[in-house]
Design a protein around this nucleic acid. Sequence first.
RNA 1: GCUCAAGUAGCUCAGUAGGUAGAGCACCUCCUUGGUAAGGAGGAGGUCACCGGUUCGAGUCCGGUCUUGAGCUCCA
Length: 634
Amino acid sequence: MPINITLPDGSVRSYDKPVSALQVAQDISPRLADASICAETEGKLIDLNHVFDKDSTLVLHTFKTDAGKEIYWHSTAHLMAQAVKQLWPEVKVTIGPAIEQGFYYDFDRDASFTDEELLKIEQRMQELCAQALPYTRGELSKQEAIKLFGDMGESYKLEILAEIPDTDIISSYRQGDFIDLCRGPHISNTGKIKAIKLLKSSGAYWRGDEKNKMLKRIYGISFPTNKELTEYLVFLEEAAKRDHRKLGKDLDLFSINDEVGPGLVLWHPNGAMIRHLIESHWKEEHLRRGYKLVYSPHVGRSNLWQTSGHLGFYKENMYSAMDVEGQDYYIKPMNCPFHISIYNANLHSYRELPIRLGELGTVYRYERSGVLHGLMRVRGFTQDDAHIICTPEQMDVEVEKLIVFSLDMLKSFGFKDFLIYLSTQPDGSVGEKADWDKATDSLAASLSKLGLDYSVDAGGGAFYGPKIDIKIKDAIGRAWQCTTIQFDFNLPERFNMTYVGADNTPHRPYMIHRAILGSVERFFATLLEYHGGNLPLWLAPVQVMLIPITDAQLDYANEVAEKLQLQGFRCEVDPRSEKMGYKIREAEMKKIPFMCIVGKNEAANGEVTLRQHTKGDLGSMSLDTALETLKQQL
RNA sequence: GCUCAAGUAGCUCAGUAGGUAGAGCACCUCCUUGGUAAGGAGGAGGUCACCGGUUCGAGUCCGGUCUUGAGCUCCA
């Protein structure tokens, strides 16, 4: 009986005796065999030395596939654990998975790892790579596994084993003198790992629970070639240059000040201008789509938060009450109760729905000190909030409109790649299951209808409703959550929201809570990082810098600036008696999109010379031509 | 909040074995009026995050507080 191995392209290779995945790879091409990291059969990842004794499918994974990377990095994590155990035998190992970019391994050790120690570990890893130690799979019963890891004193492994059913077969992987409890698969030998960099060490709780012991984590990354590692390190440097905190300082956009308080943002004129432009655009787009703008106060009486339930489920994120004539008031962590109160101020007919109330609403939330991060995570921020109140029948249309609107809005700022998540009903949620299913289906159907790829986060919804989140992918691959579209089965009930239906009886409306940008602060940060500070012309706080070559052209420069301003451009004149090169350099570093250079020739002919940021000299031209050029970029 | 690191002029950073602070850029004044990324000279600017301790003497050593960074947990 031949054994048929079916490959992804549909071709079949027949063998008359059992054959390993690696052998099949060899038969396809030795180079493929060399590049292969692991294999996959019937949807399950396997080692390359897995032997097929019956008809099977086979997919080979190289470092190019996600699965290949994951296995490669996971194997490197094992290698790192081996090196650490060799250097410090008393250290206990815990777990060490692959992550999106690289891997980590958590160790139980009193002292944290210093940079010198990381280098030492890296060296030991390289020595172990040179030995090309094979990773060998072993299978044992739970009893045997407990004995094995118990004898080694690896208490964390015993804890993991305790959660595995008694009857399961446990797999372990050994390379050289190191053995780890592991599902696998792994690369064939340590020699496959060519380039390693241990990036940083930090603390991490055992099982991510802050009640547990703080372990010492080492992050690292590895590649099949040194070239890839170098590229990755360059990429990290590039990311650091785009950090919004650095750009915010360099371009004088915002600051966060000790005395004012952590997590509270001061918007400087340039940053405030950008924010103004974002917000104006936001308002126009909302009005165009049938939203009504509202404003609401920054504080509200405790009754309001009692009714909304925030004092119950959200209290730990709220600041403590302030006393106003014997009554408790709370600064708002959310805008919803106010928007609902606006809705409830009047009686509504089904004929008015949907009602879409929008507000750039500033909220304050208590965030633990350790989580604050530039503008990405702050204590006071402005949500681009809106609540859509509609009949159940209108829900599908509204959801679809909302998704289209969200993507259009994000695209208008230059973003192109999005990650979309659908989060479904968690345990302990409120509302009827039927409503949940209906809402969840509506969200899913809209996404599918629009042909959008999304991942499902099962049980990841809020307790009050399912949601869609959209994350923006950065030019260098990082993802930031902006848009969130959440159904709410809780608040309409709590606030007894109603509308009068065609049958002349009150009905409970559906409510969708949504933010497209998320928060103006986070969106602003993402925008900055995405563009690396080089904002599109319409968002640049200063669009044109007028640079007179000598003081003699100062009047002419002012004249040109005035004309540009009349056409709606934001421009400034650099009047200093500095050399032109000096002023150009400064304008370039401030990332001002256009420079308008005027010397005696331009002044004499009524012309200007344009220079575009990062692109250089565009030559001299009439003022009208220059205006045309600028307008084309808007 | 927890673990580890850091906090010196507006910015980026030096500061060696504890002896009351230094550079570059930016800023101010003067000279220079220069054609596509830094012209020259001079000047001003710091209770070395804050509080306490050790010491004859602390930017430097010790303790505490605040803030920042990398993570953990959580989230827009």
